[in-house]
Amino acid sequence: MCFSFNNAANRAAFLADEEAYCRKYGLTGEQRAAVAARDVPAMLAAGGNVYYLAKLAGILGLNVQDLGALQTGRSVDDFKAMLVAARAGVDPALGGLHIGSRPSASARQRENA
């Protein structure tokens, strides 16, 4: 079903009649209940793949950070804050922009040009 959501007309059809749309794709009772409840962990447990469920989430107005918040029982702001807080654990030798220490072949090429 989620593959069909690449098509705008299909996304509109889902929104217009979700029950009929799910029936057309033969969702199991477990899958249908998970979609109806907007229960992302249950969708995953029922065999959903998050890369494709993201297309369904998009129809429902949810992005991957909303999904993360839903799945971890946090508010969206708390979920985002958790991600930003992870930066504190990044060693300065790792984080940020580092330019190669030796003159690169491309730089030599520039000089010789």
Binding site: N63, L83, A86, G95, G96, H98
Partner: peptide, 16 residues
């Protein structure tokens, strides 16, 4: 290989 550049930043969206 020679490293010309590297950049690492946490986070963008849910990603390092």
């Amino acid at each position: 290989q020679a490293m010309v550049m590297r950049n690492y930043h946490v986070p963008i969206s849910n990603t390092a």
